[in-house]
Amino acid sequence: MDIFEHLRQAGGVARTAQLLSAGYSRTDIARLTDRGVTQPRRGIFVRPDAHAGFVAAIRHNARLTCVSAAEHYGLWLREPPAEYHLACNHGHNKGFIRHRTVRFNPHPVLPLAAVEDAVLHAIGCLPAPTSTAIATSAIRLHGVHIELLKDQLGGDRSRPVLTALRELDLRAESIVEVDAQHLFRANGIAFDAQVQIPGIGRVDFLIEGFLIVEVDGFAFHSTRKALRQDLARNNASTLNGYAVLRYPPEVIWFNPEQVLAEIRAVLASRKASAKAKAP
């Protein structure tokens, strides 16, 4: 393989030792500068299209992990981090967040910690629901075994991470569902998730047995068929005596008080109606 292409597959950045171990000669490496490759530091070669996070990792002799690895693994993440999170044993307070303990073999090509380490670092580093979304998506999308993660933990320092793993609710199918779960739990709203209701189908959340709450993704109603199917579900819900509230992601994220107020209003209305009908 051409060395320039090899560098691209490595994330656009590599050290001299990496290129030598891949079988390229020092002459091959020296010629990289003729093709627009720069050397921000001696022994480090960077393509113009290199990912900035990978460059930071190589410069610090580290690997991206935690929230910084999430986007590369396709994990659920709303916003990129303000600082890089790197797995290494040095560089404390050097402009990045350091994660020292690495338990799994890293990515074979890119300067990335294993997805399992990224999950463990995220749970120990980030608040919910950000960490919860990363962990849930790693388990759902990458087949990460939660018991394997638990087996790697030991000692008092790992206890909060182990507790968080035990409390994961893996029924969520998107980041917005994870955020909704967190919102409901934090405000004392009990719910069932991903409930199959006869004559209606599966709903995102069912509260107090009668209130259906759906959180719609960005691809919601992408076709006329999807619109018709969803209208039929809404009608079936009403005909079967269910109340329905629907929210797009931005309302869950940026106006949670509206969500809580409307849910509580529906619950209060049902209780008031039941009380009025009581003998």
Rank of each mutant, 00 (worst) to 15 (best):
R8G: 03
G11R: 06
V13L: 05
S21T: 13
A30L: 01
A30I: 05
R42Q: 10
R59D: 06
C66N: 04
W76Q: 11
L77R: 02
Y84P: 04
N89D: 15
G91Q: 07
G91H: 05
H92S: 15
N93G: 04
I97R: 05
R100E: 09
R100W: 07
P108E: 07
V109Y: 03
A113I: 06
A113T: 10
A114C: 14
A114Y: 01
V115P: 02
D117P: 00
A118M: 11
A118G: 08
V119L: 07
L120C: 07
H121C: 03
S137Q: 09
L149D: 02
K150E: 10
D151L: 12
L153Y: 02
D156N: 14
L162W: 15
V176M: 15
L183W: 11
A190F: 09
F191W: 10
I200Q: 01
G201H: 09
G201V: 05
R202S: 00
R202H: 03
F205N: 03
I207P: 01
V213C: 13
E214K: 09
E214R: 07
E214S: 05
V215W: 02
H221M: 12
T223W: 01
T223L: 03
K225D: 15
A232S: 14
N235Y: 14
N240V: 09
V251K: 09
I252A: 06
L260C: 02
A265Q: 15
S269C: 12
S273Q: 13
A274P: 02
